[in-house]
Amino acid sequence: MSTKPRSAATYKDIQRVTGLSLATISKFYNGQNVLAENRRAIETAAAELDYRPNVFASSLRRGSTRSIGVLLPSLQVNFHLSIVVGIEKYLRGQGIGVLVTSNEFDGTPSNVDAVDLLRSRRVDGIISVPAMSDSSALASAVAAGVPVVTVDWRLPGLDADSVSLDNVQAGRVSGQHLIDHGHRTLGAIVGEPTMWSLEGRLQGFLAATTGSGLEIQSDHIQRAPLSVNDGYAAMMRLLSADVRPTAVFTANSELTVGAVIAINDSGLRLGHDISLVGFDALELAQVTRPKLTVFVQPVETIAAEAARIMSGRLDDPTGAGERLVRELPGRLQIGGSVLARHE
């Protein structure tokens, strides 16, 4: 025997229970003043009826859904998911909902454009960790008046606010730490040239080496897609080089994990035979022996700043002014994976 689901309660149901006018009930749910006894009657009836206001419909009537789209290149990377958590944490306090999507599904490209999907859901703005393939769709959103804030990656020509780590500082501090410990034959594992954030980290790393009068061999700069397997392969190439680096900087968390596994498999001792400064990978840093030295980006602060900028754009949608560009400093968390060499 099937039971018919009970339909959702409406204003008319509350009117039937309380005897109040629809105008009074509407005023209450739109935040206007009503008599105390009427407020108590409405709240009691709503609890009995399990009435839940349709916030989406109310927002549409006001011309706003009070929702933000978050666009990610992948739903399988810890950094991206941490960004979502930080954005949602900030915006929930502002009464703004979050809709998360990606142009990738199970590691393969989706056949539905994620930006178009978000716009079809009438989001008030988009916070994006963009891929190059998102550039055109995001530009169209901006042209249509949709506020856009990019995180971790600045797309050329996109008229949008931006929040990221100070990537040049990250690479420079990491490289200088290796140099200060006496290392002169250095290597780095970084992303492809199109990866804006990792390219900045490489620039900072090379600035540190150049400033110290060091020249890096071309085969000591290994470029790889951002995956554990590719980080592993890149580190193995460095370890098998004719002149092996004594110290390496890995510019991304997945690359760091792969590099550590490669060192373990090679039989070399981390912090003795080979030194390493990793990136993020905080959980890994706690379980390696010795503990891994890593550069840490302030993910929660980056996410909150992106959400704060977006909230400001929604509060003043007609506000003029230059686009905001925020580059936030990170910090080096010292472990024991960098050997001090005495020449």
Rank of each mutant, 00 (worst) to 15 (best):
L198C: 13
L314N: 07
L268T: 04
H181M: 07
E192A: 10
R184S: 11
A144I: 06
I87Y: 07
T209I: 10
V146H: 02
Y90V: 07
I68L: 07
A241K: 04
V260R: 02
T101C: 07
A137L: 01
R269Q: 08
E199R: 10
S110V: 05
L339R: 14
G175Q: 08
N30V: 08
A306Y: 07
S82F: 00
R39I: 14
T101W: 01
M310I: 13
L178D: 13
V85M: 11
A281F: 00
V17C: 04
Q169N: 12
N252V: 10
G97Q: 13
S120H: 02
V338G: 11
S82M: 07
A41M: 08
L75P: 01
A188M: 12
W196T: 11
D265P: 06
N229A: 14
F79V: 01
M195G: 05
A208R: 01
G319S: 08
E48C: 01
L214H: 13
S64L: 13
A307P: 05
A304E: 15
S337A: 08
L99I: 15
V98Y: 03
T318R: 03
T194G: 06
H177M: 13
S110L: 04
A285V: 02
L91C: 10
D134H: 14
Q203W: 06
T293K: 04
L165C: 09
G175V: 12
Y51I: 04
R172D: 12
D180V: 13
D273S: 06
V84L: 03
A114T: 04
T3G: 09
R121N: 15
V151W: 07
S2K: 01
D230K: 01
V260S: 10
L314R: 06
R331W: 03
E104D: 11
D316M: 09
D159G: 08
R289V: 09
A160K: 08
R66N: 14
R323K: 12
Q169A: 14
E88L: 00
N38E: 03
M1F: 06
R154S: 15
H177L: 12
G97I: 13
V115M: 05
E192G: 14
L158V: 11
V287T: 12
I127M: 03
A241Q: 12
V168L: 04
G267W: 01
F28H: 15
N167M: 01
L284A: 06
G321T: 10
N167C: 02
S227W: 02
Y90T: 07
L214C: 11
S120D: 09
H220E: 10
F279G: 03
Q169L: 08
V142C: 03
Q94D: 11
